[in-house]
Nucleic acid binder design. Structure first.
Lengths: 181, 181
DNA sequence: ACATACATGTAAATAGTTACATGATTTC
DNA sequence: GAAATCATGTAACTATTTACATGTATGT
């Protein structure tokens, strides 16, 4: 799944400009997909070239002119085929867990800071997901599911962070002490 | 955090060959970091050039000669500085959730298959993590923490999958019916 | 006979991020 | 006066994956 597919996906829900597609990824999909302008604009140009989307220019008062993209029937078909042949893969990369692996090398205060930041990050994301779930009325069942998936994971991890943080610090301390004495 | 840092991290725990570093990522770290030979070997060459690691060649009977890498004092210091300045960031990309967002476009049977595959993937990873936790005796407190973090997340998500899968299918069905009649 | 494990490495292709360039309008 | 929002786009850089190349030994 690359930026081309992400753009087609958003456009399958309704027309949008490149800027609006980016916003969708910052708002509704940020917890499981991300992309940047540097990928979106070239992707839209390529999709237009391939006839999978078309656009009209919309002049606005007091705002720059924007290109509003619409998915074509060929685009719908192409996106459908992509969905059918895609595997439900996941990739998770965590610098936080990598840092925790080497917590025994770090000063206790620094570990505390990292654990607090991670907890804050999880809380912030949880807040965003819950806000969308309650505020947005136009969500498809699938979208609601993805948000609940995020909420469930974050809640469980937050609980672990609260239960295990102190224990981790003590364990590291205990492993360090024998060598210092 | 890139392949250079990942290699230094593994080598900070003990000497290893490129092949063994790859194995470490397939076994103990697979749930939050991944890399490939095409990244590891060039990274080790660069690190050697920079004096952050050194190696000796070890000839083996009935096995190809291997290069055993050791982290240097400069390497330890460099790795420590990297750990200190790194933020506890996370990035999660899920084709599964992207597919679920567009579940309303897919045949019911296909959605079921995707949900089952995702459940199987979560179960498989959970099994691996729990096996390492019980079998490995030489884990640092931090490593134990990363494994428990994975176990907690996967268990919560598995529970959700069991509770919500049928409901999602029904919701999609209900949203589809009015248009068909 | 075929696949897998061991072992190292290169090259091409793919993909993505970041910074830059431009410029009006609105909010603090 | 500065920063943020709206709006599009390019170019350089960074990183990673995949496939290829080579070869032995072991297990099925």
């Amino acid at each position: 799944m690359n930026t081309h597919h992400l753009c087609l996906g958003i456009l399958s829900l309704g027309e949008a400009s490149g800027y609006e597609i980016k916003k969708a990824f910052e708002e509704t999909f940020c917890h499981f997909q991300a992309t940047s302008f540097g990928s979106i604009y070239p992707a839209l140009a390529k999709l237009t070239e391939q006839g999978l989307v078309s656009f009209r220019e919309e002049t606005q008062e007091k705002r720059p002119t924007k290109k509003v993209f619409t998915i074509t029937p060929a685009g719908h078909e192409h996106f459908y085929q992509t969905l059918l042949k895609s595997e439900p893969a996941e990739q998770y990369r965590s610098d936080f867990l990598f840092l925790m692996m080497f917590a025994h090398l770090l000063p206790q205060e620094h570990i505390k800071t990292l654990l607090n930041k991670q907890t804050e990050n999880l809380e912030m994301e949880l807040g965003i997901l819950e806000r969308i779930l309650t505020e947005c009325q136009t969500l498809t069942p699938g979208m609601r599911f993805t948000l609940e998936y995020g909420v469930t994971g974050n809640k469980a991890l937050l609980k672990l962070m609260q239960q295990r943080s102190l224990q981790l610090l003590n364990e590291i301390d205990a492993a360090r002490s024998p060598q210092e004495s």
